[in-house]
């Protein structure tokens, strides 16, 4: 159902660095689950609209009026790497 290569590709998309045996276990477990799930693909769903919301409301909008922002200290307090009044990260450009 799902081979190592697919698992590794999906893990890359999801930014998960799986260990080798995790990859194998994942391939096995996900395949089992997907086998079970496959069933729904047999249903005849011709012309059935998809449901992404059960609430059928539309246009829930807010007026363009400012609300208070958080103090910088408060948000940086949680930061793993406060840097120049901002959030430090390894530069995406670094080799």
């Amino acid at each position: 159902m799902l081979d190592r290569e697919q698992v590794l590709h999906v893990a890359r998309l999801a930014r998960l660095e799986l260990t080798d045996d995790e990859v194998d276990r994942m391939a096995d477990e996900l395949s089992k689950v997907l086998d079970h799930i496959e069933a729904i693909r047999e249903l005849d769903l011709e012309g059935v609209p998809p449901t992404s919301h059960v609430v059928d409301v539309t246009n829930v909008l807010r007026a363009d009026e400012p609300t208070p922002s958080l103090p910088r200290e408060a948000i940086l307090a949680a930061a793993p790497e406060p840097l120049n009044d901002g959030f430090g990260v390894p530069s995406p450009g670094a080799a």
């Binding site: 948000i75 949680a78 793993p80 790497e81 390894p90 530069s91």
Partner: peptide, 18 residues
């Protein structure tokens, strides 16, 4: 990046994420 756990922040960005 903004809160919670960070591992290997001294490595490259994708490694830190993963």
């Amino acid at each position: 990046v903004r809160y919670g756990l960070r591992v290997d922040g001294d490595k490259d960005l994708i490694t830190m994420y993963s």
